[in-house]
Design a protein around this nucleic acid. Structure first.
Length: 887
RNA sequence: GGUCGAUUGGCGCAGCGGGAGCGCAACUGCCUUACAAGCAGUGGGUCGGGGGUUCAAAUCCCUCAUCGACCACCA
């Protein structure tokens, strides 16, 4: 290989970029044709479209690695694959960014008007929309870059209008006056599940509300509130119907201070008798609970705030104040009137805008809603019956619970950037309708019409992502790609948008296509900082994937991330794993270099199981492929990476390559067999590793003379477990296991006595007849790996004088150490071993003398444990004999 | 308040009914020409506490504790 693999300043990008271009040129990113046998099993993934405001973060890095691993394996399995790429216009997020950008130039969106602002947003999209896509390509993701989508592209807009119009005509969307979460900064409604709760150390103010007529000498009621300013809009006071303290007051009225309004005292079950004073001031226009109580009690609604949360006209000196000023003024006024009973500290949580973190105001306004009752049954059914499967499976319940609690969805946003609601109104005759096409004149009276000013919640368009990117807008369910490749196979995402996005995709897909949108939902762990807390700028525990790729290569980052994927909900980011992974990539590079340096005289051909070592490694490969397939099919990515790492490093490199060194300078026939076998195992390994480490594996594939079924590894066939099953060989595994054990025992002895590996040692191995025969055949391996001066293996071997003894299962290894043995150290070591063996043997003896165990345990377990005990007792006897000999 | 997770060697995590594993860190010795981003070797845990089921529990059940996520409520 050309590169010096050990270079500390390895330039990953320089190696990765050309490979990416080669894949792209070769057309692997578009839907691949698939092999004949797999042609009917297309494999499609739609990428969760990143926001155009974003740069690649750790969540994307992990998520996109998972998807690429899936799609690359499927591609290698010969399935027609496509990974649909695109970005999301991200309504409120982008509008906020563009607002800020304009503000920095001293421009207000209100000055330039809607059209110019939307144009500024598109400009933003053109400028920033590409950056994250570039970053995804830098990770090596094999998305369909030639068919990139955008949630505001013309066809997508049409799809969204189609769905809104259908739902409107089927009474699944409606307009209503409701209390919604309003962001006074963004001046828009926010969906319930977009709100973020933040804990706040607030106060509980106890206010006296004078009774209109004193009752039994009682002059006033005390209400407790965290939001005294809203008292301006109070239209009632509620008590619990079972609360005897106030039962006699129900039906009476209080005279609301400051605004001098007479309001009723009524009973409602919402009221908690334990909390505060048991009396609740009711402000239907500014609290969702109060709204519900007001509805039930028929209370009037008084809206005291404008859209920026300033007190509206009609409230005297309070008018024009913002909510914080109003709060202070109201409290002062109560105090001055002697109506402020007390103020308590009170921790509570407040809803904030997930974009700008301004406190949200429950505010009454006219909005559009989706009637979810008609949609959620199908969405629940397809998960209940297993048509859609979650991984890990426990997320199924989370999904179903979310659906179960679902309330009507507020979809209108008072923004400019987004899908404008396709509702048209005629002010002259009152006609109104939803329409896919623009409407210019009123079909009823011929007058002019206007379109609704609001845009749709971003999730309204995101929910259509799987099919709106496949031609649904143009041809509906007859679109060729939908007919051939829908539903998709895998959706991989983070748990926090399970309801927001995943459930809604299912609902809308069931409605629009009559099909599920995907078969498998992978909920990957959330990437937390090294401190276990969510990554954030303020906490300073964030990590930038772009920097990680520079330091560890895309392969190192990908492998290192997948190593950390388990069934847990979080993943505490451990950069050490990336170090290991980068080192692993280097190990692969070096192993390949070793093979390539020893290819002189190599001719291609089938692998040749010439020796037990060959049969052993083939048997291990067969087992590996099976295990990797199982882990992949279960989406257990941590397991996949661990299997590959362990096999390649600890079996292939540590043993097989070492075994092969002597053989490569042996007979020409065996040298050739060894070369072919090295190439075979390396080839299989590269294929298995490619979905996770696409770059190193492809690079090596290009540099070595593999017998290729595809010019590029990206298109090579995935190893087939069934075809490899013929290599399973228990006897070879046993033989090589013994070789490894004996070699390790000798090395251990060396190390213990500080004997250099260069010093040849005389070794005697005592083994049972069968094992002795197996080992005898492999003596060359032991001699080569352990540097023996002499090696004798026999069932009746005698222990040489002055030798150290090492026990390995079934064998005794004597290393002759004339003049070197420290008998005290040897005794100490043997005593320690004796104690351990005695303890273990005792455990098994106890187990095997338990009648219950013998009667009830599976026969094979009893047999296994019996053999184990015999082995332990034998070893113990040997150790004790050694000790006796040492005196 | 409800639901779901987590608790295993110094750190990060696997294992999830039959003798406690991995990576990193630590310690010892090696520049053995594939690899010092490496090689060889060593030490280190009664699997959060308590109870139960079972012949057998890190693994299943109950309970407590601590940490965390989500949902609901917070006048």
């Amino acid at each position: 290989m050309a590169e010096q693999g050990s270079s500390i300043d390895y330039d990953f990008q320089a190696h990765e970029r050309p490979l990416f271009e080669a894949w792209k040129e070769a057309g692997y990113f578009q839907r691949t044709p698939g092999t004949p046998e797999q042609k009917d099993h297309p494999y499609t993934i739609v990428i969760p479209p990143p926001n155009i405001t974003g740069v690649l973060h750790m969540g994307h890095a992990l998520n996109d690695t998972i998807q690429d691993a899936c799609i690359r394996r499927a591609r290698m399995q010969g399935r027609p694959t496509r990974w649909v790429l695109g970005t999301d216009h991200a309504g409120i997020a982008t509008q906020t960014k563009v607002d800020k950008k304009l503000a920095d130039q001293g421009i207000s969106r209100l000055d330039i008007g809607r059209e110019a602002f939307v144009e500024a947003c598109y400009e933003w999209y053109r400028e920033y929309g590409a950056t994250i896509v570039n970053q995804i390509s830098g990770m090596g993701c094999s998305c369909d870059y030639a068919n990139e989508h955008f949630t505001l592209e013309p066809a997508y807009v049409r799809a969204v209008r189609q769905l809104f119009t259908d739902w409107y005509h089927n009474d699944l969307v409606y307009r209503g006056k409701r209390i919604v979460n309003w962001c006074p900064h963004c001046t828009t409604a926010i969906a319930d599940d977009e709100a973020e709760y933040v804990d706040e150390a607030g106060h509980l103010w106890h206010l006296r509300y004078p009774l209109t007529e004193p009752v039994d000498g009682l002059e006033y009621l005390v209400v407790a509130t965290t939001r005294p300013e809203t008292m301006l809009g109070d239209t009632g006071v509620a008590v619990n119907p079972k609360d005897e303290r106030f039962a006699h007051l129900v039906g009476k009225t209080v005279r609301l201070p400051l605004v001098d309004r007479e309001i009723p005292i009524f009973a409602d079950w919402h009221v908690d008798t334990e909390f505060g004073t048991g009396c609740v001031k009711v402000t239907p226009s500014h609290d969702p609970n109060d709204w519900a109580m007001g509805e039930a009690a028929g209370l009037p609604r008084i809206n005291i705030f404008d859209e920026t949360a300033h007190v509206v006209e009609g409230f005297g000196r309070f008018s024009g104040m913002d909510r914080d000023e109003a709060r202070e003024a109201v409290v002062v006024a109560f105090d001055e009137l002697g109506l402020l009973e007390k103020v308590e500290e009170h921790a509570h949580s407040v809803m904030t805008c997930y974009r700008c973190h301004t406190k949200l105001e429950p505010w009454e306004s006219e909005q559009w809603f989706v009637r979810v009752d008609g949609l959620k049954a199908d969405a629940a059914r397809v998960v209940e019956d297993g048509s859609i499967q979650f991984h890990p499976a426990r997320w199924k319940q989370v999904y179903l619970d979310w659906l179960g609690n679902l309330k009507d969805w507020c979809i209108s946003r008072q923004l400019w950037w987004g899908h404008r609601i396709p509702m048209y109104y005629c002010d002259s005759c009152g006609w109104e309708d939803a329409s896919v096409e623009d409407v210019e004149v009123c079909p009823a009276c011929g007058g002019s019409v206007r379109q609704d000013n609001d845009v749709l919640d971003t999730w309204f368009s995101s929910q259509m992502w799987p099919y709106a990117t496949m031609g649904w807008a143009e041809e509906g369910n007859d679109a060729p790609e939908i007919r051939a490749c829908y539903p998709t196979q895998v959706l991989s995402t983070a748990r926090d948008i399970m309801g927001l996005w995943v459930a809604r995709m299912v609902m809308s897909s069931m409605y629009c296509t009559g099909q599920i949108p995907f078969e498998h939902v992978i909920i990957h762990p959330t990437v937390m900082g090294a401190d276990g807390k969510p990554m954030s700028k303020s906490r300073g525990n964030g990590v930038d994937p772009l920097v990680l790729m520079e330091n560890y290569g895309a392969d190192g980052m990908r492998f290192g991330l997948l190593l950390q994927v388990t069934g847990a909900q979080d993943l505490r980011f451990d950069e050490n794993k990336l170090v290991s992974s980068r080192n692993f990539a280097n190990k692969i590079r070096n192993a390949a270099r070793f093979v390539s340096m020893n290819l002189e005289g190599y001719t291609p051909g089938e692998p040749m199981a010439a020796t037990p070592a060959d049969r052993w490694i083939f048997s291990r490969v067969a087992g590996l492929v099976k295990a990797v397939d199982e882990a992949f099919d279960a989406f257990e990515f941590g397991e996949v990476t661990r299997l590959l790492y362990g096999f390649f490093w600890n079996e292939f490199c540590d043993w097989y390559i070492e075994f092969s060194k002597a053989r490569l300078s042996g007979s020409p026939e065996d040298r050739l067999a060894c070369q072919r076998n090295l190439m075979f195992v390396l080839d299989q390994s590269l294929r298995l590793l490619h979905p996770i480490m696409p770059f190193v594996t492809e690079e090596i594939y290009q540099e070595l003379p593999f017998e290729r079924d595809s010019q590029l590894l990206i298109g090579a066939a995935w190893p087939k477990a069934e075809a490899l099953a013929k290599y399973a060989d228990a006897q070879a595994e046993r033989a090589i296991q013994m070789v490894c054990d004996v070699v390790s025992a000798i090395r251990s002895t060396r190390s213990r006595y500080g004997i250099s590996p260069k010093e040849p040692l005389a070794v005697v191995v005592k083994a049972g007849a069968d094992d002795a025969e197996l080992l005898q055949a492999q003596r060359a391996l032991i001699e080569g790996m352990a540097n023996t001066a002499s090696l004798s293996i026999a069932p009746d071997a005698d222990k040489p004088a002055q030798a150290s003894v090492a026990l390995v299962p079934g064998l005794e290894v004597y290393v002759q150490l004339t003049g070197l043995v420290d008998f005290d150290a040897e005794r100490a070591r043997l005593r320690k071993e004796q104690a351990k063996l005695a303890k273990d043997a005792e455990k098994f003896r106890k187990k095997l003398s338990n009648p219950g165990f013998l009667a009830k345990a599976a026969q094979e377990i009893v047999e296994k444990d019996t053999a184990k005990l015999a082995e332990l007792e034998e070893a113990l006897a040997k150790v004790e004999a050694q000790l006796a000999e040492l005196g």
